[in-house]
Simulated assay, not measured.
Amino acid sequence: MAKPNPKGPSRTVDIFCAKCKAQLFKYRKGGKGALVKCFKERIVDDYTKTACVCPNCSITFARDCLVRGTPAFKMIGGKVTMK
């Protein structure tokens, strides 16, 4: 399978914790669909102290995995929102 385009799309979205509304990432997302995964190379700003854990309420919002051979965070349903 093909790897994602490293430059990625120019549109950025802000990703927030669904529970406490703390900002987690600023991410270059492509398409109009739901946020299922975040490729690490497309994260512009990372506001978390520990990977996949909210800095405010300490819930785990994602899992670290490989998608098409590229490191990514796989989001857990209902744990994050985006604007």
Rank of each mutant, 00 (worst) to 15 (best):
A51N: 11
K3E: 12
G77W: 11
R63H: 14
M75H: 15
T50I: 06
V13L: 08
G8E: 03
A18N: 09
D45F: 01
P9V: 01
A72I: 01
P4E: 05
T48I: 00
A34L: 04
K3S: 13
T50W: 07
T48K: 08
I76R: 15
V44D: 04
C20D: 04
I15C: 10
F25N: 03
T70P: 01
T70C: 08
M1D: 12
G8C: 08
N5E: 03
V36E: 12
N56S: 15
A22P: 00
F16C: 10
I15K: 09
P4W: 02
D46N: 15
D14S: 10
T70I: 09
D46K: 11
K83F: 10
A51R: 13
E41N: 11
P9M: 02
A18S: 15
D14L: 01
I59C: 13
K3G: 05
S58P: 00
M1I: 07
R68C: 11
F16I: 03
Y27V: 00
G30E: 07
G31V: 01
D64K: 15
Y27G: 04
A62S: 14
C52Q: 08
D46L: 03
M75K: 15
D46Y: 07
V36P: 00
F25C: 03
A22C: 04
A22V: 01
N56M: 05
